[in-house]
Amino acid sequence: MSCRFVARSGGCLIQDANLYVMDVYLPVAEVSLDIFVLLGLGAAVGFLSGVFGVGGGFLLTPLLILIGVPPAVAVASSANQLVGASVSGVLAHWRRGNVDFKMGFTLLMGGLAGSVLGVWLFTFFAELGQVELVISLCYVILLGALGFLMGIESARAILRRRRPGTARRRLHRHTWMHGLPLKTRFRKSQLYISALLPIGLGFLVGVLSAVMGIGGGFIMVPAMIYTLGMPTAMVPGTSLLQIIFVAANVTILQAFHNHTVDAVLAMLLLVGGVIGAQFGTRFGTRLRGEQLRFLLALLVLLVAAKLARDLTLRPSDLFVIPADNRL
């Protein structure tokens, strides 16, 4: 066997040269992977997670699939890994006083309900043999749209800062959303808005979390900034707080319904990930909000472009046996 990593397309990603490798067998994924690749992957994604306040699942899941982890196991184990990475991140933000607990738990109410529906949908699509397609499509559509919107907005913000004297954006714009009932005051975020907004947002993210193996931070963060109007500094910590609980719920539900959580894989990713997240958080506080958002937008667009390309390129093999990948 001279091929170390066989890409899902059938090609060989990394040839077995004289690389120093230490393979570890993952009991639920039922594949052997190099321990250093897993640790490094965890650290890189953890760093990004700390910088942007997103769980990094949207990068981790596709990367795991790329190195040969069955998609269903990648999705469920990423959720498991997210729990630990988010705990580490929240603690770092909390020490800086940047967590709005009231907002976090309001988001969570919707999130838990959403993740139950999401795991059910996941099982449903897996039985139809379409879960891989659904995962990829969700990624392309969401990442593409968000990266595009966020990129434009943050680029404008950066340009505005360079040219002083241009009119600033109005602080508060009154839209239909502000007419919703259940108005609640979120003191930490200096907001007085309907509780239905964060609950609805949490629900949407909960569904995606279960289907895509992500904490939903990359949707949550822009939505909290642009839709809810939260201060940028407060967003990452609060987003991570709710991700802890949604990811924990997804992990338990996936373990129970689909038997796809590989705890060994998750722990290996975590060891690298939690340390990376701490350094990421420190690095992140040195960057300006709009620079941060612009970088995140670029990253998101890059992943979307890669996935879109994979969907439209003719696969090297037209026939697949999903059961062999334990889907």
Binding site: N80, Q81, L82, V83, G84, A85, S86, V87, S88, G89, L91, A92, I244, A248, T251, I252, L253, Q254, A255, F256, V261, A263, A266, M267, L270, V271, V274, I275, A277, Q278
Partner: peptide, 16 residues
């Protein structure tokens, strides 16, 4: 599933 979650929380806390 529950143990996997608890282990992840512990790992996150210890690392911080």
């Amino acid at each position: 599933g529950a143990i996997a979650v608890v282990m992840a929380v512990m790992a996150g806390w210890i690392a911080s």
